[in-house]
Write a protein that binds this DNA or RNA. Structure first.
Lengths: 331, 331
DNA sequence: TCAATTTGGTTATTCGTTTTACCTAATTTA
DNA sequence: TAAATTAGGTAAAACGAATAACCAAATTGA
């Protein structure tokens, strides 16, 4: 910057004023000088240093989106959404993967060290309320999607699944379903178990017994594995008339298995998923599922940028999204 | 840092020496002082500022992975691979999406401004050789996966598709296939057209005519759209005995359509994909395709970190991966 | 016993910007 | 015509850490 100034015959301060447009004394530069400086910048191929700028202004002009793992249908949409809004506000987006305890801590540390001005944390598994508060206290605008946490200096978006899960069970009950199978994976976070419990208890309240042999707790991650689990289930002497899956992908695999076994969905076996992923709309039959109808992308970005824009520290806001039962063809 | 020093009764330089371990005079601190400083750090919740550190050291300890769009099967694996290696080398990974001209330029600008010490650019569409050279000249360790570019101060990984595509055609020809349909999408980059041309020309050299009605140039992005296009194709009076798809996903949708039409794969119609995505292994039948057997993840990360580690500027290296015909069940 | 060395630090400069406070010459006002 | 204003800058002090150069006291060596 000093070099640019020297070449244009001005001081480095003048260059800075020109580049940053209207500041405290920034609009008082003659057109002539301006042109000379621009020429010098072009000739030298000068580019301002972001670290220095961030250090001086105490602002990085970056926001960070933290997702456990890219490659899920949800992360894709969320990332695109946040990136668009970020760029519209003059921020650039940094994506970070936080899958696993190690990585989550690592990202947390990076944010503490000033990686970005704000962050959206999607489903942090290991961070405590205190740590999040600490981060927010350090000046990072924080929005967290998580049912576990709450804070006074950052925002939280929660998902209320319970009611929709109960609705699903009641719907199936009302349509005469009584022989219910479950497809799940036991995971570290235990979110799947919670859903199973919720389903299970609702059935019990309705007086419908659950056969232990109908509860598959480890169907695997690959489609093929799920397919095989379900195929085996269908060969048992007494087969279920309903399959409640822990995710839409499991549900889709289940539909394949059922159709390949010569049975009809939903006439012979009803299938219901969880999550409402886009793929569910184009399967045959389209998938009945439980999830958010409108994704929470907008909520998260809205909270983040209102927080970034606010001159005074905002206190913690909480938004709750209700999940809904989305009736399509498979149940 | 100064505050930490004051609390521990030492200067800020001492704190710095302790935090950075062995530097020019860093190992000469007594255990006693060390403990006092650590305590002060903990009590104050001090965390070093990354911008200041980067400014002084001219090094960010970050690498950036630039992908057009997350959510593709490839990007997922690549990101995980790079992140693991990066963290093992003491770097943190920043992910950036460069889809579209605007975003690609934006990421380029960020890198010029010193976002990271090194970057892997995956399939940049709009960047020129000069711009890449400029970026590398600015001190960014650069590895680019792209067939279009070459440089003397950055590394390039190229994919040689041609031979494998020809192998595929020849294989089909040898197995008596003569009525060939193509499934493609016209894209901005024109990569799909290139592949089509390559296929097409090989068939012509073998003296097999291509029916224009068998060339579908706009099958859409959604599975359902592809499915419908293929279903319609199958209803024509003279149906193809071979479908060459522009991607594995198209191929998978084609298989569904064929089976739902009561035909067999590969007996009635052979299907071949491009890309070798993981899903291809678990379909029924497993998908015959053209692609890399071992992913190029290792090449890219290897080149990047050897470049970052090298004390002298390396000249441009080029690696070429051959695509191969991967015979599975669908052709 | 006195110079040489080691121990355990400190001081001051630097990285590349931004920004406040100040300055001088030219122009306007009364 | 002198005072006040304005136009068009400049100088210098931050921001928070890293590091080269220096230094005083304690220890060692011959």
């Amino acid at each position: 910057m000093y070099d640019v100034g020297k070449r244009a015959g001005v001081s480095s301060a003048t260059v800075s004023f020109i580049l940053n447009g209207r500041g405290s004394g920034g609009d008082r530069i003659s057109e002539e000088t301006r042109q000379r400086v621009y020429r010098a910048i072009a000739e030298l191929g000068y580019v301002p240093n972001q670290s220095a700028r961030a250090l001086r202004r105490q602002k990085t002009d970056r926001v960070c989106l933290v997702i456990p793992q890219i490659g899920t249908p949800f992360s894709d949409g969320l990332a695109n959404s946040v990136q668009s809004v970020a760029e519209a506000h003059g921020y650039s987006l940094i994506l970070s993967m936080s899958g696993g305890r190690e990585r989550e801590r690592h990202v947390f540390e990076q944010l503490r060290r000033g990686l970005a001005d704000g962050a959206v944390l999607f489903d942090p598994e290991h961070l405590t309320n205190e740590e999040l508060a600490q981060l927010a206290h350090a000046g990072v605008a924080l929005v967290v999607q998580c049912n576990r946490v709450q804070g006074t200096n950052f925002d939280v978006v929660k998902i209320d699944e319970i009611k929709a899960l109960q609705d699903a069970v009641r719907y199936l009950y009302d349509h005469g379903r009584r022989r219910v199978a479950f497809l799940f994976n036991v995971t570290e976070s235990g979110i799947q178990e919670e859903r199973l419990q919720s389903y299970w208890q609702t059935w019990r309240e309705l007086g419908v017994p659950i056969l232990e042999s109908f509860v598959l707790r480890n169907v695997g991650r690959l489609r093929e594995q799920v397919y095989r689990s379900v195929s085996k289930l269908l060969q048992s002497s007494e087969r279920p008339d309903t399959i409640m899956a822990g995710s839409d992908m499991f549900a889709i695999s289940a539909v394949w298995a059922i159709r390949d076994a010569g049975l009809r969905v939903p006439e012979d076996i009803a299938v219901i998923g969880i999550g409402n992923i886009p793929e569910g709309e184009i399967t045959h039959p389209p998938l009945t599922t439980v999830g958010v109808v409108t994704p929470t992308f907008g909520d998260l970005t809205g909270l983040l940028f209102s927080r970034l824009a606010s001159p005074v520290p905002l206190d913690g806001r909480v938004m709750t999204r209700q999940w809904e039962l989305i009736l399509r063809g498979s149940a």
